[in-house]
C-alpha cells in the first residue's frame, strides 16, 4: 500500500515538535527516517499510524491491502510493548482475537512463530526472553496481521550491538517486499534497510534531504558494497552532524514518549 503525508506538523502543548513536512512512501518501498534525537521521528511514525492526531496536515493510505490483511498499518515498537502476562503465542495472537476463529488463529500464530524462529518459545513469558527474542515476538505480532504498511520505531535500538546485527539480517528477510517506514538514529542501519533515507532536521523535524540507496538490498551485506555504503553514511553524517550536536546540547530534547 502507498502512504502519503501532506503538510504534517505537530506541536505538544504549543511546542513545535515536527514539520511541516510532506512524505510519500510507495508500495513495496522501504523508507528509513533518520534525524537527531528529539527531532520528532517517533511523533512522525505515531502520526503516520493514526496514534497521534497531527496539529496540521493529514495522512492518506492508498491501494489495496494484501490478501488476508487484518490491520492496514502495523507497528514494531522500540520497547517491544509486549503484554508481560501473556505467553509468546498469546502475545502474537492478540491482534487476531475477535477477528478469526480459533483454528485459523492457531494456524496463523504457528506460522508467524515459525517464521520468526520462536516456535520453541511459544509458551514462554516475555520476562524469560532476551531482548532480541522479545523483539522477535514484536515482529511476529506485526507480521501475523499481514499489514499493508509496517511502521518500525527504532526496532533494534534497545538491543546490544551483536543482537542488533543478527536481528537486522533476519528482519530484512522477514520484511522482503513489504512497504515499510523504519525509524532509526543509526546511520548504518538506515543505509542497510532502506531504498530511500529521509533525513530530518533538528526539532521541529523537517525533511532536510532524501538520499536514495543505489545498491540492491540483497547486495548490501557483501564486501563489494562496503565502499558505497560508507560513502552514503559519510554523506548522511555530514548533513546530520551539526543538528545532532545542537540536539545533544539542548534541554528537553531527550528521548520522550511520543504517545506511541
Amino acid at each position: 500500500m502507498r502512504l502519503r503525508a501532506e503538510g504534517l506538523a505537530h506541536a505538544y502543548d504549543g511546542i513545535e515538535a515536527l514539520g511541516p513536512l510532506d512524505l510519500a512512501v510507495e508500495s513495496g518501498e522501504r523508507v528509513a527516517v533518520i534525524g537527531p534525537s528529539g527531532c520528532g521521528k517517533s511523533t512522525l511514525l505515531a502520526i503516520l499510524g493514526g496514534l497521534v492526531r497531527p496539529s496540521r496536515g493529514r495522512v492518506l493510505l492508498e491501494g489495496e491491502p494484501p490478501r488476508g490483511s487484518l490491520v492496514p498499518l502495523a507497528y514494531v515498537f522500540q520497547d517491544f510493548a509486549l503484554l508481560p502476562w501473556r505467553t509468546v503465542e498469546a502475545n502474537v495472537a492478540l491482534p487476531l482475537e475477535d477477528r478469526l476463529g480459533a483454528a485459523e488463529r492457531r494456524e496463523r500464530v504457528r506460522a508467524a512463530l515459525a517464521r520468526t524462529r520462536l516456535a520453541d518459545f511459544a509458551r514462554a513469558y516475555p520476562r524469560q526472553l532476551s531482548g532480541g527474542m522479545r523483539q522477535r515476538v514484536g515482529i511476529a505480532r506485526a507480521l501475523v496481521v499481514e499489514p499493508g504498511v509496517l511502521l518500525l520505531d527504532e526496532p533494534l535500538s534497545a538491543l546490544d550491538a551483536q543482537t542488533r546485527e543478527l536481528l537486522l539480517e533476519e528482519m530484512l528477510g522477514l520484511t522482503a517486499g513489504a512497504t515499510l517506514v523504519w525509524v532509526t538514529h543509526h546511520l548504518d542501519e538506515a543505509v542497510r534497510v532502506a531504498d530511500r533515507v529521509v533525513l530530518l532536521s533538528a526539532r521541529p523535524g523537517r525533511v532536510r534531504a532524501i538520499l536514495p540507496v543505489p545498491i540492491p538490498e540483497a547486495e548490501r551485506g557483501r564486501p563489494s558494497a562496503l565502499a558505497e555504503l560508507a560513502r552514503l553514511r559519510h554523506e548522511l553524517w555530514g548533513l546530520l552532524r551539526e543538528d545532532a550536536r545542537r540536539a545533544e546540547a539542548t534541554l528537553g530534547a531527550g528521548p520522550a514518549d511520543a504517545g506511541a
Binding site: 498499518l73 507497528y75 520497547d79 510493548a81 491482534p95 514518549d257 504517545g259
Partner: peptide, 21 residues
C-alpha cells in the same frame, strides 16, 4: 505503561477488548 494501550490501539483492538485484555 501507556505504550501497551497504544500498542493495542495500533492493532485496532476495540475499546472493550483493550479494557478486557
Amino acid at each position: 505503561p501507556k505504550s501497551l494501550v497504544r500498542m493495542a490501539q495500533s492493532f485496532d483492538l476495540a475499546p472493550r477488548a483493550i479494557v478486557l485484555r
